[in-house]
Design a protein around this nucleic acid. Structure first.
Lengths: 207, 207
DNA sequence: GGTGTCACTGCCCCAAAGGACAATATGAAG
DNA sequence: CTTCATATTGTCCTTTGGGGCAGTGACACC
């Protein structure tokens, strides 16, 4: 699987060496001397890739960069690479979702394995998010009223109840309901509920 | 949150010391000198508790015990505690779901924090699984035929189509459908679909 | 042979959903 | 003022879903 590997490390000779190794393996590579450099290079989160990140770098540390990226909603997988790993940092990084935590010097085998896993994982996550995004996009085209009707429909309310709760008539609800089905591009109540469930709109036990 | 902490360590004096500290903190404690001892003590997976597990112990190692427990479907959270942590082992343990990975000597603060988190996590997981189990139990009371009807209902088929696909009549499908709603204890199609979705019965795009 | 479960089915009726056709009202945008 | 989007509603008709009542047939178990 091809992809772009972002190498963030303050050691210039290390960057050069890694870049060479990764390019030999068929990956595109971009290097950064600091976390800030990386953040400045406004990057495309959707492009297949991952980050090879040193823990100890001047300025923003590796884990700090990880936090920022997570907070910013990035889904680029991160592989940490460090000279000396301490256990709490390792644990924290993995818990926060890092793909791996490797120590220098790293064998090409371990490194390439980790990169391959990271790219595979990102690919799976991206395609999954892609489907949800399509649903969200449809959902966004609903008007306020249609959205209210949608919420009640997927909770199992019948038109009569919805009409009462929204202070309108059954006929009106039917009209909105029709719009909802149309805009969400589904042909059955089951599909609609399924989508709502996947978007996490039903978790709290709303009966 | 009270709970039973299983301490697995081959160092008798360490076991004694830890047991004292944990009991002071209000936890019940059981100790084991080896992973095998622990496995032999056929334990209740549902009871609130966690495992404090040494990595290097004679016989089955800590990570090996972890694998076995996972394979056996156990959901007891594991906190590793070891004298000298190596990075690959740490990474693997956390990836496999360990709650934490601590090094001896461990401060009471870190240890008790980890235990509290482990118990909280297990509690959340257990209550979540509890709900799903209730659904599964209802699902298990369905006859073969009812189950087939269930599968088609939650995929959005209408009675007429279901009847055709099962080679029977619409009236019969209605009868089964009634039984399904009754046995699953739901009052709307939406609830039924919601349950099916949560049980992961709809993920593959079956239209 | 009696009993029970499960699957199947017809007839009839009511409730709910879907939709065609038509129309009113309101507020924002140009 | 005109246009557009949104929300609203009525009448009428068809399709679906839900269910009562009643009965048949297969098969397993005692």
């Amino acid at each position: 699987m091809p992809g772009l590997v972002h190498v963030v490390d303050d050691d210039a000779s290390f960057r050069t060496a890694i870049e060479r190794r990764l390019k030999l393996a068929g990956y595109d590579v971009k290097t950064y001397a600091s976390a800030q450099d990386f953040l400045n290079a406004a990057l495309d989160d959707e492009q297949p890739g991952c980050i090879l990140l040193d823990v100890r770098i001047p300025g923003l540390s590796g884990p700090e960069l990880q936090s920022r990226l997570i907070a910013a909603g990035s889904t680029l997988p991160i592989i940490f690479l460090t000279g000396h790993a301490d256990t709490p940092t390792t644990v924290q990084a993995i818990k926060a979702g890092a793909e791996d935590f490797l120590t220098k010097p790293v064998s090409s085998e371990l490194l390439l394995d980790a990169i391959a896993r990271a790219l595979a994982r990102q690919d799976a996550a991206r395609s999954h998010r892609g489907k949800l995004e399509a649903f969200r996009a449809h959902l966004a085209t609903l008007t306020q009223r249609e959205r209210q009707v949608f919420d009640l429909i997927v909770r199992g309310r019948i038109n009569k109840q919805i009409a009462y709760e929204l202070g309108t008539t059954e006929r009106t609800v039917k009209a909105h309901r029709h719009q909802v089905m149309e805009k969400m591009q589904v042909h059955s109540l089951a599909e609609l509920v399924s989508i709502a469930e996947r978007l996490g709109m039903l978790d709290p036990n709303g009966r």
